[in-house]
Design a protein around this nucleic acid. Structure first.
Length: 218
DNA sequence: TCGAAGATTGTCT
DNA sequence: GACAATCTTCGAG
């Protein structure tokens, strides 16, 4: 399926915005349940929206891969804010990544949104990403989706319940369609199974070869 | 003030 | 699969 084709998630476009209490739960559960939800970004150029198909959980100061492991600093301040806050950070000198702050057991934890399937604003995404890109390459990575959606430091610390950045409930993804793997691109706690993807979705980012994959089970 | 690391991506082989 | 690009952040001195 191409990004321009009709997508099942279109039906969920007008669903309710996820309330802050949605994020005030166990981070792994929030990461799994964000699959199927719809990320929406409003800018003067237009609205971009996409169905979340890949997430990673970062569990707090005891999780060596989580930014909060370094403690409370200027950079990590949003992680200590209310659940349902956007944590947007700059990485490798050129990329932005967006997280939803959670509050499991009072910990500074978050869910990284790694990939979405475009729903609305696809022409805008192509313009931002470069018209020559394949549709599948528009939003199949954390930095790619931020570029396509126009997400940057201006969105850091904003609540995810209102424009310019919000997440709506979407069509639920059944457990049988959810895969669990280790997180991508990290060195510490690299084997913790905290990455959640929608099985078979063409917008899920590429994982390293021979990455362990298992079906999600509660 | 300096140096190293980094939740990535695109390009080349 | 390997590697460069690019710069913010933070710890060390």
């Amino acid at each position: 399926m191409t990004a321009g084709a009709a997508h099942p998630a279109r039906r969920s476009r007008r669903r309710a915005v996820l309330p802050a209490r949605f994020y005030a739960r166990d981070t792994e559960r929030v990461a799994r349940e964000l699959l199927g939800a719809v990320l929406e970004c409003h800018t003067p150029e237009g609205v971009a929206a996409g169905r979340i198909v890949e997430t990673e959980a970062y569990l707090g100061e005891h999780d060596a891969a989580c930014h909060a492991a370094a403690g409370r600093t200027g950079r990590t301040e949003p992680l200590y804010g209310p659940p349902g806050t956007a944590y947007v950070y700059f990485i490798y000198g050129m990329h932005w990544c967006v997280n939803a702050v959670t509050r499991a057991r009072g910990l500074p934890s978050a869910v990284l949104i790694r990939a979405v399937a475009p729903i609305d604003g696809i022409a805008l995404m192509r313009a931002r990403r470069g018209a020559s890109r394949r549709d599948a390459d528009l939003t199949n990575g954390p930095a790619k989706l931020c570029q396509a959606f126009g997400i940057d430091v201006r969105h850091n610390g904003l609540p995810l319940q209102q424009p310019p950045l919000l997440i709506r409930a979407g069509a639920p993804v059944p457990d049988r369609d959810v895969l669990v793997t280790p997180r991508i691109g990290i060195r510490r706690a690299a084997d913790w199974p905290l990455r959640f993807t929608v099985a078979g979705d063409p917008f899920v980012s590429r994982a390293p070869a021979h990455f362990p994959v298992r079906r999600y089970s509660r």
